[in-house]
């Protein structure tokens, strides 16, 4: 498997670390216990296209949001995660 890093270009899997589902969003402070429990522990086990966080630690050290089909490993999109590269944040 290879991932096309938006900063470095196409690289082998060994340069990347998988973090997991990119979908969960931290709930608001007053969202309640159930929402926090869901955010911390509950994950969908998706057979198909999902959005994932990957870290290019063996390269430019940017966090990436990868859209990958878990059945075929086909990657349909790679974009910088929020905060990757100072220019992308509050420029």
């Amino acid at each position: 498997m290879r991932i096309v890093c938006p900063f470095c270009g196409e690289r082998e899997l060994g340069e990347f670390t998988y973090l997991g589902d990119a979908k969960p969003v931290r709930p608001a402070a007053d969202a309640g216990e159930d929402a926090v429990y869901d955010y911390v522990y509950l994950r969908d086990n998706i057979a198909g296209v999902m959005s994932e966080n990957w870290y290019h630690g063996g390269g430019c050290r940017a966090w990436l949001k990868v859209t990958r089909n878990t059945l075929t490993h086909e990657i349909s999109a790679v974009e910088p995660a929020a905060g990757a590269g100072a220019a992308k944040v509050g420029a």
């Binding site: 470095c8 063996g58 390269g59």
Partner: peptide, 10 residues
Amino acid sequence: AAATSMDHTS
């Protein structure tokens, strides 16, 4: 240039 790894070393 490239930021990459050789032998698991950045």
